[in-house]
């Protein structure tokens, strides 16, 4: 197959780099969302404990 010109090649190059970027960002977002959910659950626990402790 003959080499693609710059005009025809750049969408492939961009697609490859975008695939990688999307995967890395999705991975980091999933890890971050898990930590945020944990923090929220602990905050809820705190609020519950505070309400229970109040007269």
């Amino acid at each position: 197959m003959p080499a693609l010109g710059l005009h025809a090649a750049w969408p492939y190059v961009a697609a490859a780099y975008v695939v990688f970027l999307v995967l890395v960002v999705a991975y980091v977002a999933i890890v971050a969302s898990k930590i945020t959910r944990l923090e929220r659950r602990l905050d809820g626990r705190d609020a519950g404990h505070g309400a229970a402790g109040r007269p």
Partner: peptide
């Protein structure tokens, strides 16, 4: 020379 600009994927694909 052989593949042109599309060979830039090499710098991502092979290290991965």
């Amino acid at each position: 020379a052989d593949q042109g600009f599309v060979q830039k994927i090499f710098y991502l694909h092979v290290p991965l």
